[in-house]
Amino acid sequence: SLLLVAEPEGIFAMPDPTVPESDIKALTTLCDLADRELVVNISWAKHIPGFPSLSLADQMSLLQSGWMEILILRVVFRSLALEDKLVYAEDYIMDEEQSKLAGLLDLNNAILQLVKKYKTMGLEKEEFVVLKAIALANSDSMQIEDSEAVQRLQDVLHGALQDYEATRHPEDPRRAGKLIMTLPLLRQTAARAVQHFCSIKQDGRVPMHKLFLELLEAKA
């Protein structure tokens, strides 16, 4: 219940209507969107029960490892109702053609593979919010100071998922496990995304805001 309440509102990309469509415009829009979403996601993390009790250093480490997984999982959940399209924002939906134009076809296809998995399972909002918190708590940072505290956070979130499934999906005792088993693909896809945006950053043709840059650099 706390995670459902903490879930952020939808976000708008607001691409500049005066700029003609191009790969640079699309990437600039996405990087700006990501920067604003990251601010929202950091406030969200503070509402995960147990997260604020971690040391500031451990909170930072988990976010530095898991931020892209959180961004992608949100895009994936928003895209569940559509076919072969990614809802990066309520006003920014990318189809195959737009993905090609932005040079994001491979990355977006990888994200669509996640969408397909969750569609098949019928992922519910309750499951999505817990899974997102688990992705953060389980982001495998190498810099954790108090790994027992992080383990306790993982256990609480894992317990919440198991309790939910036991109540809502008693017909499928393996549903919680199935959801957890989607996380490797999320990790893999996020790593691809980070790699892609790191090379865009090195090109230097797309303006990026400071928080997005700071977190990309944490991954470099």
């Binding site: 950091i42 406030s43 503070k46 500031l56 930072m60 530095q64 928080l211 700071e214 650099e217 944490a218």
Partner: peptide
């Protein structure tokens, strides 16, 4: 941690 100033600040803000 000096490198991660913005993340640090955002986590310290109360909201």
């Amino acid at each position: 941690k000096e490198k991660h100033k913005i993340l640090h600040q955002l986590l310290q803000n109360s909201t």
